[in-house]
Design a protein around this nucleic acid. Structure first.
Length: 285
DNA sequence: AGTCGCCTGGTA
DNA sequence: TACCAGGCGACT
């Protein structure tokens, strides 16, 4: 589920809830497979340390500890991180519980069991995660780089937007929404996107991410805030999950569903047309 | 580039 | 009952 705006929301809420500075008194792993990788024993290294940093890179959430270790969480499809008083009722799907010294617990879980929690030192975080991701779509992506990446491949633009090694943080919802705002067909060859369109698309990416962060992310199904509350961006989806409904720009044209790169894709065939591409021009001749 | 596996739950 | 899902890595 969670893409950049959802993880950013979690991060902001953890900061507001003053998690930084709290020390960790206990770790309970209810579902051992959630721990994807540890350089050392999870519990031994974490208990007794305190959280001194919370940040996000792409779709990863990082809890930095004061011993140079990091708890690195990837939510995959259905991951959920809740902050509860210890006495609060058990949350379904909880897989790992991090107890804080003020009586609160960070409870992480995932109904589909795809999500991962890893413990890694600063050097590993950099080598195994940060250096493998492209610039963060919300905070590090500029037109210069974006256009250069587009020029470098003929892959469908939508697939490129989802490629975390090229651009970090965009997932299926925001790829669909940004392409609609920029009026670009999801299957357009990346290299055929003109600089002017690239600028539009970059603006659209920044727009949808920022608006979603303002609304606390999208809770189409599984995403929850740290207090269990829902995001609201799904209330203003333009095309995502809207197959068969009218395009907001064309009341008589219905949103079409298709697959691009194996992922469900939504677009309006009137406002999002494939730019006349070079291959077609050659064939025409 | 496409398909499969990882798993479970919601919905047509 | 079948199909789909805010992801991603390992296959062919």
């Amino acid at each position: 589920m969670p893409e950049l705006p959802e993880i950013e929301t979690i991060k902001n809420q953890l900061l507001s809830a003053a998690v930084i500075g709290r020390s960790i008194t206990q770790i309970e792993v209810l579902y051992p497979q959630v721990v994807a990788y540890t350089e050392e024993g999870f519990e031994d290294v974490v208990v007794g340390t305190s959280v001194d940093d919370v940040h996000r890179k792409g779709k990863y959430l990082v809890l930095g500890l004061d011993n140079k270790r990091n708890i690195v969480i990837h939510f995959r499809m259905n991951g959920r991180l809740l902050l509860r008083e210890r006495t609060f009722a058990f949350d379904p799907y909880t897989q790992i519980v991090i107890s804080l010294d003020d009586g609160r617990e960070l409870r992480f879980g995932d109904s589909r069991k795809f999500a991962t929690v890893e413990l890694m030192c600063d050097a590993d975080l950099k080598a195994k995660i940060v250096n493998k991701l492209g610039p963060d779509a919300a905070s590090e992506l500029d037109l210069e780089y974006f256009y250069q990446v587009l020029q470098s491949t003929t892959r469908p633009i939508k697939s490129l937007l989802l490629d975390q090694q090229k651009i970090a943080g965009i997932g299926n919802i925001y790829a669909n929404e940004a392409l609609w705002w920029a009026k670009i067909h999801p299957e357009t060859s990346s290299a055929d996107v003109e600089k002017r369109e690239a600028k539009e698309l970059l603006g659209a990416i920044h727009r949808v991410l920022a608006e979603s962060i303002q609304l606390g992310g999208s809770s189409k199904r599984w995403f929850r805030h740290i207090d269990g509350g829902l995001g609201r961006y799904q209330e203003i989806f333009k095309v995502y999950n809207k197959a068969g409904l009218p395009c907001p720009r064309h009341q008589d044209v219905l949103i079409r569903y298709s697959k691009v790169g194996g992922r469900g894709t939504y677009h309006c065939e009137i406002c999002q047309q494939i730019a006349k591409n070079r291959q077609t021009s050659l064939i025409d001749q």
